[in-house]
Design a protein around this nucleic acid. Structure first.
Length: 804
RNA sequence: GCGAGAGUGGCGGAACUGGCAGACGCGCUAGACUUAGGAUCUAGUGGGUUUCCCGUGGGGGUUCGACUCCCCCCUCUCGCACCA
């Protein structure tokens, strides 16, 4: 054994050894205690790994290694989310083709991941750009289509007038183009494919009550789904057309205060109800807002709007109220129309103030409520100016007025969600073609399953252009096909699908990655899924995790999966920032882990990243403390090097080991890596203080270090004479009896202040403890001449006297 | 504005269910060993007017006892942003 710890040598050695021995591979068929440890697969950026990856992946890997040491057959696969706008834009920028670029970046990423010493089973790797993968992505699209969950409809796309191209949502920053910060992104309309995720809104919400996920993530999902209970109310037009304006409100109790209606500029009835006199003004307003749609959402701005010239009847008051158009009403939520109650809704209040519309108070705030000047009172109260409902509490009135409306055919209870259907069409090149064909005779025809994959052709010029459609629409050999039904000349869909579809099912693919005949083998799926632990960043708390759940539920409903939630457990790791900011190329604060691995080795670096702070919180990257971890691992190295087989560990030391096992085990269960490392360091300190260690002490230490510093642990395990991997060893058992100290130290408080300490037998009675405590000079001084009014004994903790 | 999370030594952070604030580490100070030290080891390290007092963003409260619970306020980070 070398005198000095040399990470470069032993890490290369063990990475080679693991590869040769197949240490990280698990036999999926034979495994008896399957444990699926999943980490969010990366997008292989050209820059390679940054320290955020070196935090996220090792953290998940530590969990997997810990489970393995506990005796599970841990499956820890990895893959690459390599389709999408990032790769495409990067390729455009450097003048390369993604089809050539991606394999290079994937290879680089993979070698960097390997340097981190992850327990990855590469024999089940996936790459979303592989036709053997996206064939099944397309297959899932077809499944959803046949199941009635995919539909085609006109929808706005983001158009940058400066780039002359369609933008992805993530390229739109606050309504402006990412590359032209002064250019407002416009809306254009195109036929696009949607998945009807809104049908699953209630179930996606309800299941959050029982799935074992980070609470923060669940809250984010709940907010995103955005369930609101209220009523749909219909307001008849007074023009004899019989038309009604349907609105959604969460405050039916304020109906008597609805003094006008507002339609979104996109509302389908705008053109029909606008009076001739107002037509010019309305058209101009609508045109302008549609163009500026994304800017309009940028922030809350001054209210703008225009009167249509039309009136509707408030079914409660029987009064005619004007119908306006304003961009503060969103077309995609509710019915795209609202009843405005300026007295009790701040937005309506501002609008009414701007346009001189009447304000009628219908809710009396509870006595003593302070209502700010020039604001709407949005809280609960008692109804006034509400005819038969006067005097009713607002909560009760919600139900009563809704029922009253329902009886008269003017409305009903209604639940709305913020969640929108998932638009999966992308007018781009670098993605899986959507497997659909448009035939003049047969209409929309899905590509037959046996014709999959629809290969993404190699297109020299894949730059999007001013046509607003995918570059694939320029490739005749691609889009000209014969209709699968009638054989007539037909046209292929030229949009590709959203990257989020690729990543919505990759975890289903891993166990079956070796199979080309099925997307996921039923038996393997049954055995290995749902995923036991999923670890990833909170930036995917909403979209990715919502889409995955939806796809899983849909496949479950089709009878293709035996479970409806994909992940038994999900834990979000924190974000690593640099100088307080998110790491990004444009900020120039991206930290590459390679330099640290070169200098300190992967073990030190992994452990240091975990020691930086709580795994679930992340933190700001700095390298000031890395020497501490290095010193710790060097000390462990020396302990093993100086190991004396004759030595007997002292009882104190043995007890310290038991205590450490209990602590580290408990911490690892909860991903509290920073405190687990602290406990390991304490144990090393104890070994130095109460040494020498015997074999058992050192082996316990090594096994506990192994998840964090796998190479070092293997090397020292071998040095202790073992022929097999330390990861085939078992996590040590601690003896709960050994945790109980014979003597315990208690603090002695007088009037809440610590005045001394006593050491007593663990079994000492309260009386003995109190007597001993009173005898300490420092305590006696404070008790002198006072009467003890109360005394509290907290076993194992303290004694407290209250004197007066 | 709404939602989530967080404010503790010079720094990163610890503290179970209300029970000795500052574990562990960085840094710093002193010493030992050494030709040498950016190696190793030992001791110390919240502040102060040091028998004692103060101290977990600020202000109140509950309690024998509060970083922890309750009320009000401030600051920061992240997410969503006119969702009726």
């Amino acid at each position: 054994m070398e005198e000095r710890y040399n990470p470069a040598v032993i890490e290369a050695k063990w990475q080679r050894r693991w590869e040769e021995r197949g240490t990280n591979r698990v036999d999926l068929e034979q495994a008896t205690r399957p444990y699926y440890n999943l980490m969010m697969f990366p997008y292989p950026s050209a820059e390679g790994l940054h320290v955020g990856h070196a935090f996220a992946f090792p953290g998940a890997d530590i969990h997997g290694r810990f489970r393995r040491l506990q005796g599970y057959d841990v499956f820890e696969p990895m893959g690459f989310d390599a389709f999408g706008i990032h790769s495409e834009n990067y390729a455009l920028k450097i003048g390369a083709h993604p089809a050539e670029l991606i394999p290079r970046t994937v290879a680089k990423f993979r070698s960097q991941l390997n340097r981190l010493g992850l327990m990855l089973d590469w024999s089940h790797a996936v790459d979303t750009t592989d036709p053997g993968y996206y064939r099944w992505t397309q297959w899932i699209f077809l499944k959803l289509y046949h199941f009635g969950l995919a539909e085609r409809k006109k929808a706005p796309v983001n158009w940058c007038p400066a780039c002359h191209t369609v933008l992805a949502n993530e390229q739109v920053i606050d309504g402006y183009c990412e590359r032209h910060p002064e250019v407002a992104v416009e809306q254009r309309f195109a036929e696009q494919w949607f998945f009807k995720i809104t049908r699953y809104a209630e179930r996606l919400l309800r299941n959050l009550d029982w799935i074992d996920w980070s609470e923060t993530t669940k809250t984010a999902q709940r907010n995103w789904i955005g369930r609101s209970e209220g009523a749909a109310i219909e307001f008849p037009l007074n023009d004899g057309s019989g038309l009604r304006i349907r609105v959604f409100t969460t405050r039916p109790d304020t109906l008597f205060g609805a003094t006008y209606l507002v339609l979104a500029p996109e509302h389908e009835l705008v053109a029909r109800i606008t009076s001739p006199a107002q037509r010019g003004a309305v058209d101009a307003y609508v045109q302008r807002t549609l163009k500026m749609d994304l800017v309009r959402r940028r922030s809350v701005r001054d209210k703008t709007g225009v009167f249509t010239g039309a009136y509707a009847l408030n079914p409660a008051t029987q009064k005619l109220i004007p119908i306006w158009i304003a961009d503060y009403v969103l077309a995609e939520y509710g019915t795209g129309a609202i009843m405005a109650v300026p007295a009790h809704d701040q937005r309506d209040f501002e609008f009414a103030a701007a346009f001189g519309l009447p304000v009628v108070q219908v809710i009396q705030p509870p006595p003593g409520t302070r209502v700010e000047q020039d604001t709407a009172y949005e809280g609960p109260g008692v109804l006034v100016n509400s005819g038969p409902f006067d005097g009713m509490a607002s909560a009760e009135a919600k139900k009563a007025i809704t029922a009253w409306l329902a009886e008269r055919g003017f409305g009903e209870e209604r639940v709305e969600y913020k969640l929108h259907d998932w638009c999966i069409s992308r007018q781009r090149y670098w993605g899986p073609p959507i497997p659909m064909i448009y035939c003049d005779h047969c209409g929309v025809v899905p590509v037959p399953e046996q014709d999959l994959p629809v290969l993404l052709p190699f297109v020299e010029n894949f730059r999007p252009d001013e046509s607003g459609v995918s570059p694939l629409a320029r490739v005749r050999e691609f889009y000209e096909v014969s209709c699968p039904r009638c054989r007539a000349l037909a046209r292929r869909e030229t949009d590709v699908s959203d990257t989020f579809l690729d990543s919505a099912w990759y975890f289903l693919r891993y166990p079956s990655a070796h199979r080309s005949d099925v997307a996921f083998d039923p038996e393997l799926t049954c055995k290995w899924l749902p995923v036991d632990m999923y670890i990833g960043g909170n930036e995917h708390a909403v979209l990715h995790l919502m889409y995955t759940r939806f796809i899983t539920m849909a496949l479950h409903d089709m009878g293709l999966l035996p479970f409806e939630e994909p992940f038994r457990k999900f834990r979000a790791h924190g974000l690593i920032t640099k100088d307080g900011a998110k790491m990004s190329k444009s900020r120039g604060n991206v930290v590459n882990p390679d330099q640290y691995i070169d200098q300190y080795g992967a073990d030190v670096f992994r452990m240091y990243m975990m020691f930086l702070g709580p795994y679930t919180e992340g933190g700001d990257f700095r390298d000031e403390g890395i020497a501490g971890v290095q010193r710790f691992l060097e000390a462990v190295w020396r302990l093993v090097r100086q190991f004396d087989p004759q030595a007997q560990a002292s009882p104190v030391l043995r007890r310290s080991v038991h205590r450490t096992i209990a602590k580290v085990q408990e911490d690892l269960e909860e991903l509290r890596y920073n405190t687990a490392i602290a406990a390991l360091m304490s144990l090393a300190n104890d070994i130095r203080r109460y040494g020498p260690p015997d074999r058992w002490v050192l082996e316990c230490l090594l096994i506990m270090i192994a998840p964090f510093a796998p190479h070092l642990a293997e090397e020292l395990w071998e040095a202790l004479g073992h022929q097999t991997s330390i990861f085939d060893a078992r996590w040590p058992q601690y003896d709960p009896q050994a945790l109980l100290e014979e003597q315990v130290e208690l603090a002695v408080q007088v009037n809440g202040k610590v005045r001394g300490r006593i050491t007593v037998a663990r079994t000492a009675s309260d009386e003995e403890i109190v007597r001993a405590a009173q005898e300490i000079p420092s305590v006696r001084a404070h008790l002198q001449g006072k009467t003890i009014r109360k005394q509290v004994v907290v076993p194992g903790r303290l004694v407290s006297f209250v004197v007066g």
